[in-house]
């Protein structure tokens, strides 16, 4: 069985890559994908911890993370579609006004 440190290090690296994409990209499709990468990294950490302590709790938390990712993505993509219909662009910078720009 693998040492727990290597999956934990991989989870850290993937989380940081997702955070990097979240900070550096402007297109909202990529921002949502970066959030998915970060959630997936958290799931990997839960699985590794579940293996380290030989308990099913890690996989149960992974299933919870999976649920959260699904619900978050559904709402995020619905918001994305509405934003596209309103602004005709997907740049996050375009949605800085909380009121109608008319």
């Amino acid at each position: 069985m693998t040492d727990w440190r290597s999956p934990a290090g991989l989870a850290l690296a993937l989380f940081m890559l997702g955070l990097l994409g979240l900070l550096a990209r402007k297109n909202l499709v990529f921002v949502l994908m970066s959030v998915e990468i970060m959630l997936n990294a958290a799931g990997l950490l839960f699985i590794a911890a579940g293996m380290r302590w030989s308990t099913p709790d890690g996989q149960i938390m992974f299933i919870a993370v999976l649920n959260l990712a699904g619900a978050e993505l559904a709402i995020g993509l619905a918001l994305l579609l509405r934003l596209r219909g309103r602004l005709t662009t997907l740049d996050g910078d375009a949605a800085i006004l909380l009121r109608d720009s008319s």
């Binding site: 069985m1 727990w4 293996m51 380290r52 308990t55 099913p56 890690g58 996989q59 149960i60």
Partner: peptide
């Protein structure tokens, strides 16, 4: 500590 595999049966019983 050497971890061990967690079979799906344990996950389902706990869940």
């Amino acid at each position: 500590m050497a971890g061990s595999a967690v079979p799906p049966r344990d996950v389902a019983l706990r869940l």
